[in-house]
Nucleic acid binder design. Sequence first.
RNA 1: GCGGGUAUGGCGGAAUUGGUAGACGCGCCGGUCUUAGGAACCGGUGGUAAUCCGUGCAGGUUCAAAUCCUGUUACCCGCACCA
Length: 800
Amino acid sequence: MKYDFKVCDKKWQDRWEKAHAFEAKDDFSLPKFYALIEFPYPSGAGLHVGHIKAFQSLEVISRYKRMRGYNVLFPIGFDAFGLNTANYAIKTRRHPRDVTDENIAHFTQQLKRAGFSFDWSRVIDTTDEDYYKWTQWIFLKMFEHGLVYRDKAMVNFCPHCNVVLSNEDSQGGKCDVCHSDVIQKAKDVWYLRITKYADRMLEGLEHVDYPQNIKQQQINWIGKSTGAYVNFPIKDTDDKLRVYTTRPDTLFGATFMVIAPEHPIIDKYSARIANIEELNAYKAECAKKNEFERTQLVKEKTGVKIEGLTAINPINGAEIPIYIADYVMMSYGTGAIMAVPAHDSRDYEFAKKFGLPIIEVIKGGNIDEAAYEGDGEMINSGFLNGITTKKEAIEKAIKYLTEHGIGEAGVQYKMKDWAFNRQIYWGEPIPIIYCPKCGMVPVPYEELPLRLPDVKNIEQGVGGESPLAKIESFVNCKCPQCGGDAKRETDTMPQWAGSSWYFLRYCDPHNDKCLADPEKLRYWMPVDWYNGGMEHVTRHMIYSRFWHMFLYDIGVVPTPEPYKKRSAVGLVLGADGEKMSKSKGNVVDPNDVIEIYGADTLRTYILFMGDYGMAAPWNDSGVKGCRRFLDRVAGLTDIVKGHGVTPSLERSFHKTIKKVSSDIEEMKFNTAIAALMTLINEIYDAGTLTHEELVTFIRLLYPFAPHICEEINEYIGETKMLAFCTWPEYDEAKTIDDTIEVAIQINGKLRGTIMLPRGASKDDAIATVKADGRIAPLLEGKTIVKEIYVPDRIVNIVVR
RNA sequence: GCGGGUAUGGCGGAAUUGGUAGACGCGCCGGUCUUAGGAACCGGUGGUAAUCCGUGCAGGUUCAAAUCCUGUUACCCGCACCA
């Protein structure tokens, strides 16, 4: 058979669609499998080969699971709100709706062309008002349950995009969208109380099947630490300086305190601080730097002593000085620390520079040279003296603090509450109304969706004002409670909102009564297998787990965790081994590959490149190799003859079915394809195969290269589409050979191989080896010290 | 600095989890067919003339190590003055 992909690809894509081959059935009696890929952001650049790789894993598994009798939900959608589209729309003077529709159409065309078996009847678009109605609904539910609050805060602000960013969106001090430097700005911020769920998110990790490195990243991101809060009285005032420390056991070694430059205590006591001007100058200097610069730059410690305020170490009454320094952040802990220079390297560095006393309280290091952060016997520490373990010392110290009202045990998280508002047009409007009489009033549920006003001009406001603020017809409204004049919130939700629950909507995408029917959620949830990129492990995954836990708490979803299993895709690098990027000119467009080689070649190659979870560089010759393989598959139709079993191939077929099945389930696609290549080489060596064997072969290859397999299936006279066929079975007994090649070693060095019957006894095996013409001479005149026999593997004779 | 990962032919990568290193593919070499081939097909291909040497490097455990242990180097990813 000649393989003409140009005809074949389209033909089968149309037939599958006509037959509704990949639509998930809401038949709750069937075993279900919910395969989820991260829905793409429909950018103007179109799909790239990295997307294909990310989707292709569960694509293969979905096709495989369907053949194994599962009711598979493998949906697709578009995460379309966001700054990128908004900025592009502003630049091109178009409406983001039009831009989005156009991009989605382009993505859809590309995805269909690659032959993905998505359930297209369930497509969702986060910018669709029937979808974001429910995003707003969830927000209001959170508001109702006290998980939403508003606060003035210093926020990460991108002066280029004119928008507030979350910590997650401004990593490394750069705007996630335009990569400009992020600055700090005081603003009203809507927060989601994600920290309330920190412990449960940590605990939940114990019950899900994520790779260890993903769990670790989430654990680090949440960043839970345990320790104590300690209150240090400020001399001659009623005030106390509250600190957080993980090492309350070292309290006797605290010789000074450091507070963040923004700490409110400075303004409060400015009148009695002698060097207030110097302090203000230092503060101003710090304010110029963003948090990134303050934390990133490797530099000497700086700081200024506060003249006029003295703290008292509550454990021993010692008077100690207070400094301001930028190595203490207002955003972590209490914005103040007790400095124990003997046992903390940062405090040590600071103490050395400012000539402050260093008191050793744990034996084991040399405090003349460096801070000692290890374990050891407590000294110079009153009631703690003599204790040798950190654990015991900390427990005793906390007990003392609590009993004497000096402090108490406490925990801290690196994770912050989620700054949830943005000042862009292209996002879900936050459904809150400000009434001069009633205060903040939620938009009534029955008025959802709160639609984006349809306007021509969506230019960003200046200084961080939302574009919606200029639209009076939107802003001005009536208070739902008192009916008086009121104004709407004009900020919108961040990009991550819509993706925090989209997997729920797939279960019931057209429901207009609730976000999804509870019975359908009970059947489909949780997601059985979620695949995506490492870059979403700490943002999207944390956010969506948080929302899902909340929805579980209010009885909307049936399980606390949304994803049962998670896997990660490795990057597709450019041919030069570098990350693909427009500027490097090493980007591969899937359409170009499909144009030349067809969808099946692209699909097969992208999984054959290497270990699925690892980055691998693109190689055009490698693509050709896969095309060659598919041509050889098509060629099988020319040598197919008769029915039944070809004796010389029988075992190879059973072995290959076993190998391909297990490899697919373990995402070892490269070796699954290699096994099929090995089998086809054997078939061509045999020169023939039967009709049934060819059917088996194309069913095994079908999940990877479905178009050509369907075509062959039809060509050889089969009437049922492979999409509806079952997966081949194998006979375990026939995956094992009767005679096995066993290695012969003398003193651990390979000296030959020998064919032995499977499971041969040790005596037989050794005897056969000793009688072997190549081995016997090597044993001549030697003393045999030891004979090792691993059945079906190896014979090793140790001689002297 | 902390956490995670990786290192195997000219290249991408295999290796039943301690048991014949280099499966499969690319590339390369040789051949067949061809006016021609950067097409297709067939054969070969870790190094070395060879006893031998070979999985980043140096040790160790073992009859046996890519795989386990100790130390070390390089690169990649994430977090980062987190108190």
